Amino acid sequence: MTNSTFRAARMLALCLILCALPLAAQKKKDNLQKPMAGPRATPLRVTWLYVSADLDTQKVGRVQIGREMVIAEKSGNWLRVFANTDIEEEHTSDAPIFDANEVPPPISGWIQAKGVVSENTPNGDQVLMGAAADQEALASDPRGPVNAARTAHLLYRRLVEMFPNSQLDAEAAWRAADILWQIQKADSASRPSAKEQAPYLREQMDEDGLKKVIKYYPNTHSADFAAYELLDNKLCGDWQGQEKCPEKESEIYEKYAAEHPDSPRTPQALYQAAYRQAVLTDMYASDNNDKKSEAAHNHARDLAAKLRDKFPQSDYTARASMLVFKLDQGIAVYGIDKE
């Protein structure tokens, strides 16, 4: 390889690394620069890289679904690309500071063009959204691919990066952040610290992705969804029979409902608050604090009435009505039945 070729390769590799910007930078459209080598792209199938545009030549590496690429040139049904094959983007916030700049460079090679979506693909955002949603559905299927959730995350992320002006942008950003949140939430729940009462004593989920959705897509349902997810880090792990947990959590959910009155999650938030007031009704009663028990009972009634008024068709409204019915009948919602 000549010096000029080597320098060109390094420049192309650097372009790919730089174009893999965080979600926040993608929304600063005035500063968004196209990679010099060509359009961004990603494959929808596991794809081999070859030394040249020939299936009989040596394989250089393999590119997974959703991984980032930059197209350098095209020859018939082949593309010469610089592809990121092994950078794990999902856990960049966990990386040691001293490793921040030690990112493996992308590798170059020839790839078959079929199944590759680029910035120039007609309706490419729709195609990526469909592919990501398909992988997300597979993730909930016990027979689905092991890494389907992470693949869906990458595809949603590619949509945001490759099509920053798409109408699907906000939803794709939310879904990408939500997938990582759910993966971390499951991991946190599996740890012994999950039973700790105070939220700060258990493994906290990384809030960065969700906060960026709120910041860069304000006044959207995607931002509403992200704000609701963030409540998870504020909840008790295990109430341990203590009244302070449902008291605080009821406040948290009611505050969310007040700040996001039109959110699709608001009925759920009001129900969660009503449930905690129903629980407090029983907790206070067991402590012979009849005054607080009656106040919590009335609070639960008020929340159920608010649900009936604003969200009459919601399942959460019916569930809240069921809670109030039980309280009115003297049936315990939390703990052992009074009878």
Rank of each mutant, 00 (worst) to 15 (best):
S4V: 12
A8W: 00
A9K: 11
L12E: 14
C19T: 15
A20H: 09
P22C: 00
K34F: 08
P35I: 02
M36L: 12
M36N: 11
G38Q: 05
D54W: 03
D56F: 06
R67H: 13
G76V: 02
N77R: 13
L79R: 05
R80N: 13
V81S: 00
A83R: 01
D86A: 03
E88P: 07
I97L: 12
F98K: 06
V103F: 04
P104A: 10
P105N: 08
P105A: 09
I107R: 02
A113M: 09
V116M: 02
S118Q: 06
N123E: 15
G124L: 02
D125Y: 01
A131P: 07
A139L: 00
S140P: 04
P142M: 00
R143H: 13
A152E: 12
L154S: 14
L154M: 10
L154Q: 14
R157W: 13
F163D: 09
F163P: 08
F163S: 06
E171W: 12
A172V: 08
K185Y: 14
A189K: 06
L201I: 04
R202Y: 07
Q204A: 11
D208G: 12
D208T: 15
V213E: 04
Y217I: 05
A223T: 08
Y228N: 07
K234D: 15
C236V: 10
G241W: 03
E247I: 13
S250R: 04
Y253Q: 12
E254H: 07
E259K: 01
P261S: 04
Y271S: 03
Q272E: 15
A273M: 03
A273N: 06
A278C: 02
L280W: 01
T281R: 03
M283Y: 08
E294H: 06
H297L: 07
N298P: 03
N298E: 12
K306M: 13
L307P: 11
R308C: 10
F311Q: 06
A320M: 05
L323K: 01
F325P: 00
D328F: 00
G330W: 00
A332Q: 05
